[in-house]
Structure formats: C-alpha cells, structure tokens
Design a binder for these strands. Structure first.
Length: 89
DNA sequence: CATTTGACGCCAA
DNA sequence: TTTGGCGCCAAAT
C-alpha cells in the first residue's frame, strides 16, 4: 500500500461534517512530520470520491485548495462546518 | 541518481 | 500580528 493510498483511506473515513488536519492524518500514518507529504499526496491524487476539502491545517486555516478558499469553504459549510474567514471552527 | 516541488508546521524576529 | 526561514517527507522532474 503506497503512502497516498493510506492517506486516501484515512480521508475517506472522515465523517461528514468533520474535519481532519494534515497533521492528524500524518500521525495516523505513523509520523506527524508527514503532514507535508500528506498534502502532496492529496494534491497529486485528487480523487473525486476523496473529500479532500475536509482536510485542513493544524492552525485551523483551510489551507491549500484548488482555486482559492471559496471552493473548499463552500463544501465545508455545506457539511455543517462553520468557517470564520479562513478559519475553521 | 540528484534536485526540485508543495494542499504543512513551528519558532524566532 | 505578520514575515521569513528551517525541517521534514513523498512524488515528480
């Protein structure tokens, strides 16, 4: 199982309305420092069935996304996650 | 095989 | 509070 597949699995588990941090995902994979690689994996895989918008930064900012925060924020809000500007609650 | 890239995280100025 | 710099890792070049 490749690194990205693991990331994929973890993110897929994320319940609707809940968000994970890259750090948290990385921790599940065994090492917190993998946070970067996690984001990288999502970026490269970009699977449509992968709720990558539920993955945020540890400082609670939305973090990276495709085409500005709007897209991700919108999706998150649709799932019941409230956002204050770029901050996730 | 050596470097660069990137959706991160933390700390010091 | 906002920058900038450094460390860390996987995948792409």
């Amino acid at each position: 199982m490749s690194f990205q597949e693991k990331v994929f699995a973890v993110v897929k588990k994320t319940p609707r309305g809940q968000v994970l941090t890259y750090q948290q995902v990385a921790a599940k994979l065994g090492n917190v420092k993998l946070a970067r690689a996690v984001g990288n994996a999502l970026n490269k895989n970009r699977d449509s069935r992968m709720p990558c918008h539920r993955v945020i930064r540890s400082d609670r900012r939305v973090g990276g996304f495709n085409r500005g925060p709007a897209r991700k924020i919108k999706l998150l809000k649709s799932e019941g996650v409230k956002i204050k500007n770029v901050k996730v609650l």
